[in-house]
Nucleic acid binder design. Sequence first.
DNA 1: TACTTATTGGCAATCGTTTGCCAAAACTTT
DNA 2: AAAGTTTTGGCAAACGATTGCCAATAAGTA
Lengths: 345, 345
Amino acid sequence: MADVADLAGVAISTVSRALANPGRVNAKTRAKIAAAAEKLGYTPNAMARNLRIGKSNIIMIVLPGSLHHGASQIIPQVLQSINQALIQNGYNLMIANLDRDETSERHILNLAFGGTVRGAIILSSKLPEVAGRSLAEAGLPIVSLLLDMSDASVPSVVTNDRGAVAEAARMLIARGHERFFYIAGPSDNYHDIERFSGLVDAFHETGLDPASITRSGGVLSYQHGFEAGKHAVEDFTQLAVKPTAVIAESDDMAISFISGVQARGWRIPEDLSVISFDGSPVCEYCHPPLSTIEQPVEVMGKTAVEILMQRMSEGADEVPTRMIIPSRLIMRKSVGPAAKANNSC
Amino acid sequence: MADVADLAGVAISTVSRALANPGRVNAKTRAKIAAAAEKLGYTPNAMARNLRIGKSNIIMIVLPGSLHHGASQIIPQVLQSINQALIQNGYNLMIANLDRDETSERHILNLAFGGTVRGAIILSSKLPEVAGRSLAEAGLPIVSLLLDMSDASVPSVVTNDRGAVAEAARMLIARGHERFFYIAGPSDNYHDIERFSGLVDAFHETGLDPASITRSGGVLSYQHGFEAGKHAVEDFTQLAVKPTAVIAESDDMAISFISGVQARGWRIPEDLSVISFDGSPVCEYCHPPLSTIEQPVEVMGKTAVEILMQRMSEGADEVPTRMIIPSRLIMRKSVGPAAKANNSC
DNA sequence: TACTTATTGGCAATCGTTTGCCAAAACTTT
DNA sequence: AAAGTTTTGGCAAACGATTGCCAATAAGTA
């Protein structure tokens, strides 16, 4: 920096001011300084700057390892949109994996308490905590994405899981479906609870008996969305009275489920209608094209960043604690009218 | 840190030594210090440390925006494995997007020259450079993943694209296929060149005439793998003499292609055999299950990190410049013997 | 006990910025 | 030309750690 000052013929403090606080220095000198910096190939040292400022410009995204792994088709989109939004605001994105082991929790806490990161976007249902320290007390702004954690007073950006599933279920009920098969991810999970509730809601609204909903899954982790679907095929096969409609908690589950039941002779949508959640692009090319509830992940990512920025700048209090971005039901060929006689194969 | 020293009843320099250089301090005092730190909830400030040390502990992964977007199913796996390997070595992963605009290139260079990152793993075919500065001159260790850049003297971890496609092609040729349809991603791209060459190799080996290979695509960006497949359907339909075998550069392309041709009456594998590249999990559940060339992305990620670590520690010269991790051909129902009479539909 | 070795204490410089302070210089405006 | 305003210079103290140096103390060995 001293070199730049020399070359530009100005004082070192002026250079600093020009770079960090451009308003307080004349446009002409600023140009001179920029030229000198360019010529010397000078880039201010970010760590020194952040140390002095007392804040980092890195945001971390906390991903449950299982989500990351193989399964969920939406992670890349989430990362992409968040990263773009962050960069526009002058921030960088760091990845933090939250596995089931204590090491990873500790690691995340170190990032937070050690000042490496300035804020966090989490996709996990619980805040990492170990040895009495919790992410909540790190003094960082946090935003939860996909999962509603507004109860724990962390602002959340979610979709209308419950309502969207209810809508899908009503659509199926309107076509004559009365017996449903629900393929769940890990139970107790926010998504499981909300989405399943949506299905039950629709039953209540339409006067059907929720007892004719069969649940499958709930034990396996997200890590194996496809596995969960496969497993559901077994469950389905063993039912004495077959449901005519299926709602799956993720596209992956639906895809492997469909593959399995088709192999055993059921036809979709003639024997069985299927709708799933996520809106992965691949659904359009499934056999038959798969109806899915599309989460607007890009909008959600951008919104999460916006909220984070608000939290970081002004008084933290007047920001909304929950932001609901509605999903969109995309109807495709995997849905048809309920089969009249539902015989086993 | 001073507080910790007080509580532990030791000098501040001893605390620093205990944390940064544990070998030079007695186990008992180390335990005392650890206890004090735990009690006070103290975490050393990473930025201060890195500033003093002169090196960051952050590695960035440079992803072409297009790769990231929607399409490639393997990105999450790559990120996951790289991040895990990095953390084990005490590093963190930062995401850097390389779009077509100059802003993103400049941003990446700032990360490098500003000392934010210590090294880079790139999935892009070209090193970012703008205004005379190039990533190559930033003095960072760089490793290229998926794309071979060993010509540009950046160590690369790749798979045997060419050989793997050749193997797949031989397998098809052995089943009587003689006319091939190749669905390409963006042309000039490393993957396009290598994989297509593999196909041509197989033709030469077996004495067939490469003229009976029809290429499709090559214009669209990766961003639309599914689109490329759709587009290929058009091309395919217009061929007077239909090929009997298809090789696609990515699973996405194959999936949408299959969906399209099936809708127009062709049957797979009876009329057309298909093999694609990537090994996405979803292939297993396609209709029919899709044969694919599985890239060992996890191993590749770990290997890339290992090489990076070597580059960062010792003399940089004796590390291998290219590491080839072989892919595995997974044969599924999408492949069958060549149709005898190949009539149009 | 005397001597060697291992471990700690205290001090101060350093990493590369930012920033408050005040004086000096350079412009603008009456 | 005088007064007022904006812009710069120079200085020095931070930010929170690490580390070389040497003296001082503790532990281990003969």
